[in-house]
Design a protein around this nucleic acid. Structure first.
Length: 812
RNA sequence: GCCGGGGUGGUGGAACUGGUAGACACAGAGGACUUAAAAUCCUCUGGGGGUAACUCCCCGUGCGGGUUCGAGUCCCGCCCCCGGCACCA
């Protein structure tokens, strides 16, 4: 060993050696317990990895190495979420081609991950933009299609002018595009492909109970799915014998208080029922609503607006005709696009009715007999009044009664509504997985491409820029578009839209189990062994996108009998964000990105790794502070000095003292426990504490056992230096093939404990006593203590509380 | 507005189920080594006060109350920060 710790002398050397030994190939030994560890696979960006990204990858690498040492077969691989808008947008900006940039960026990510010593099995690397991969994305599309879960529909869709494509609901954030925060989305009428995720709403909701995920992610999904129980009812339109306004309500008990109806401006009935005198005003309002951005339209602070259609509906409960209005607070996409106005019991309806002078009947009153508020709606459950056959019923009973009545009279039924919409997956873009569908020009209609003719290859074209016409650039490639119908052989045209990038990431976790399998998306036996993922780690930003989609696809595969599990990620954790030193986000445009390359150059990969885990709790957001790397580098230098001294005197076997033995076992216990609980910062602190103890001893007093145990525990976090130590200690084989040390709880036990003595709840003395000292002895010792006597002030103790081996509390 | 998460020294953060607040580090101060500097090592380091000295005293985990022998931790009421949702009938 050199006198000084020089990371540059050892890190490249061991990385090359590990590669040569193929140390990190997955050991797929099916009789061993398995551990499938997975980070959300990244979209390789041109900016490369920052030290912020490593706050995810380094701790996961620690877990993978730790589990491997514990004897698990570990699957830990990396791949690239390469298809999709982010990659294409970047290439457009740089006037390059994604086919060129994506592999280049991915290679750079890979280089950086290797630079910091991450132990991925690179023989399992995957790239979602390669035909070997997207062939199976297409296969899944067809699976969904065949199961009735992929359908085509026309409708008003979110459109981003910068992406020049439609977007899914999940990709619209605050009325803006998820990739272009400065661009408000608009609506466009297009025929599009959807996945019927709403069919899975109930299961996606119910199965959340059984998975170990951060509570806040579960909540976001729960809110996103937005399940509401209620009833769907219909009131006839006066003067239109075969027309009715159908509406959904969560409060069918308030039907006797319905004094008006409101349709969404886009509602198809509007054009039909509007009376001549109102037509101009209605048209103006509808156009205005369409022009408005949704961020304006959905603002809750905005005053309610609306226009009467002049038409009336018949409230079959009150037997009265009530006006039908249109208003933009009613959304076409939820329920039926129409509501009943019950202003006495709904605050929004109350505001609307107040503004337009509509009647405000009160049909619910507080159960305790108090008066309902006069200046707003009473929205709580209570007791029905002025409600015919519902009078005096509690809200819950009245709801049931109305549903029963409605079913008997065929007016409607109890039902459940969700705010989640189907997943719009068509994109009018080039860089995505082609949708494997053909439109037959004779009579076969929509025909899926047969499985044995997959993949539908993405043509290699130069001008891939989105057209903005609502059609993908693929529509201009006649060789691609024109084909024959797989069914009848007649002339046919290909679907030219590509899939949302989130389709590719909805099944990739299965691909790692058998990444080169070419007879299916995955090899069943491999999937059975490895899946589901034992620990899934990624950012919280995917809560209602990737994480919801992947759960849906998994359930589809489960239903199709392809896999035996129905949740892909039973245990999920979100790593905390690393911000720049000033608390802002790291970005190239701000020039505040700290790269692993710079940190490795300055301090070495191991010191960087240690600081990544030491700077704070894994799941919490922290600001980057380079000074900390100095500290972890210094720590490694001190370990180096200790081990060098030990090696120089010939690695004496030594006979550790009881104290030393206790330190070893206690530290092993702490480090094991804390890594398991993903508390890497405190695991490392325990190793630092033990070093502070060991470094004061002479090599002969420490002994080989203590040194080796220490090196083994350091290995997952600082793999290079640990390898250097291990070999210097005379071992032929890599430290990373060794077993994780076990601790002996008996040897870890303290011989002396500190018992705290309190008088009236304040700490007054500390007694160092042998473990097992009796309460009586401790009481006697405490009452003899000068400090205690002083604070007792001559009074006799009224009460003494004893917490064994910990504390004695005297009350006077 | 609603729903989560959080607020602890100069800084990052420790403190398992109510039981020694500030582990482990960073920064800072002083000292050793050195011609000097860097590196390294040692000591001190929440605030205030007291003492010849100490094993001394008081205060202290966003704010105000409460429960308890004992509260960073539990309860009630506020303030602030971060994240999510936001007219979903």
């Amino acid at each position: 060993m050199d006198e000084r710790y020089e990371p540059k002398q050892i890190e490249p050397k061991w990385q090359a050696e590990w590669d040569r030994e193929e140390l990190y190939l997955t050991r797929e030994e099916r009789d061993r317990p398995k551990f499938y560890l997975l980070e959300m696979f990244p979209y390789p960006s041109g900016e490369g990895l920052s030290v912020g990204h490593l706050h995810n990858y380094v701790p996961c690498d620690v877990i993978g190495r730790f589990k491997r040492m514990q004897g698990y077969s570990v699957l830990h691989a990396m791949g690239w979420d390469a298809f999709g808008l982010p990659a294409e947008n970047d290439a457009i900006l740089k006037r390059l081609h994604p086919r060129e940039t994506v592999p280049r960026y991915a290679a750079n990510y890979k280089r950086q991950l290797k630079l910091v010593g991450c132990a991925y099995d690179w023989t399992r690397e995957i790239d979602s933009s390669t035909p070997e991969y997207y062939r199976w994305t297409q296969w899944f599309f067809i699976l969904l299609f065949k199961r009735g879960l992929a359908y085509r529909a026309i409708g008003s869709q979110w459109w981003c002018d910068k992406c020049r494509s439609v977007l899914a609901n999940e990709q619209v954030v605050d009325g803006r595009c998820w990739r272009h925060g400065d661009t408000l989305v608009t609506k466009k009428d297009l025929e599009q492909w959807f996945f019927k995720i709403t069919d899975y709403a109930d299961r996606l909701l119910a199965d959340l109970a059984a998975i170990d995920w951060p509570e806040r992610i579960k909540l976001m999904q729960t809110n996103w799915i937005g399940r509401s129980e209620g009833a769907e009812l219909g009131f006839p339109v006066v003067g239109f014998p075969d027309r009715e306004v159908r509406f959904f309500t969560t409060r069918p008990d308030t039907v006797f208080g319905v004094s008006f109806m409101v349709l969404a401006p886009e509602h198809p009935l509007v054009a039909e029922i509007t009376v001549q005198s109102q037509r101009a005003a209605v048209d103006r309002y509808v156009n205005e609503a369409r022009r408005q951005s949704d961020i304006e339209r959905m603002s809750t602070v905005k005053e309610k607006t609306g226009v009467a259609t002049g038409a009336y509906a018949h409230n079959v409960f009150t037997n009265r005709d009530i006006p039908i209005w249109i208003a933009d607070y009613v959304l076409m996409g939820y329920g039926t696009g129409a509501i009943m106005g019950a202003p006495g019991q709904d605050q929004r309806d109350f505001e609307f009715a107040s503004k337009y002078g509509l009647e405000i009947p009160r049909v619910t009153t507080p159960a305790d007999g108090s008066a309902p508020p006069a200046d707003r709606a009473f929205t709580e459950p209570g007791v029905a009044i002025n409600s015919g056959f519902l009078d005096r019923m509690a809200t819950a009973d009245a709801i049931r009664a109305v549903c029963k009545f409605a079913e008997e009279k065929e007016l409607g039924r109890a039902t459940v509504s969700y705010r989640m919409r189907d997943w719009l997956i068509s994109r009018q873009r080039y860089w995505g997985c082609p949708i494997p569908i053909v439109y037959c020009e004779r009579e076969c209609g929509i025909v899926p491409v047969p499985e044995d003719r997959l993949p539908v290859l993405l043509p290699d074209i130069k001008d891939y820029q989105p057209s903005g016409t609502g059609r993908s650039p693929l529509a201009n490639i006649s060789e691609f578009v024109n084909t024959t119908c797989p069914k009848c052989g007649g002339p046919a045209r290909r679907e030219t839209d590509t899939m949302d990038g989130f389709a590719c990431s909805s099944w990739y976790f299965l691909r790692f189990a058998s990444p080169h399998f070419n007879k299916g998306a995955f090899e069943p036996a491999a999937a059975d062994y490895w899946l589901p993922v034992d620990l899934y780690v990624g950012g919280a930003e995917h809560a209602v996108m990737h994480l919801l989609y992947a759960r849906m696809w998994t359930k589809v595969m489960f239903d199709a009998g392809l896999i035996k599990f129905n949740e892909p990620f039973p245990r999920l954790r979100n790593q905390g964000l690393i911000l720049a030193a000033d608390g802002s986000k790291m970005s190239k445009s701000k020039g505040n990105v700290v790269t692993p390359d710079a940190m490795v150059e300055k301090y070495g990969a191991d010191a960087l790794r240690l600081w990544e885990v030491f700077m704070g709790p894994f799941e919490e957001t922290t600001n980057w502070n380079e000074d900390g790397v100095v500290g972890t580098a210094r720590f490694l230098g001190r370990v180096w000095a200790m081990i060098r001294r030990f090696v120089e005197v010939g690695c004496p076997a030594g006979a550790p003292s009881a104290d030393t033995l206790r330190w070893i076992h206690k530290t092993t216990r702490t480090v094991t426990d804390h890594i398991e609980r993903l508390r890497f910062n405190t695991a490392l602190a325990a190793l630092m504490e033990e070093l502070n103890y060991l470094a004061r001893l002479k090599p002969g007093e420490i002994g080989r056992f203590a040194i080796e145990t220490y090196v083994l525990m350091l290995a997952p976090m600082a793999p290079h230096i640990a390898e250097e130590f291990w070999r210097a200690l005379g071992h032929e084989r890599s430290v990373h093939l060794e077993s994780w040390p076990k601790f002996d709880p008996v040897l870890a036990r303290d011989e002396v404990v500190t018992v705290v003595v309190q008088v009236n709840g304040k700490l007054r003395d500390k007694l160092e006593v042998a473990v097992g000292t009796s309460e009586d002895e401790i009481r006697a010792l405490a009452l003899k203590s000068d400090a205690v006597i002083r604070h007792l002030d001559g009074k006799p103790p009224r009460k003494i509380i004893y917490v064994p081996q910990k504390l004695l509390s005297i009350v006077v």
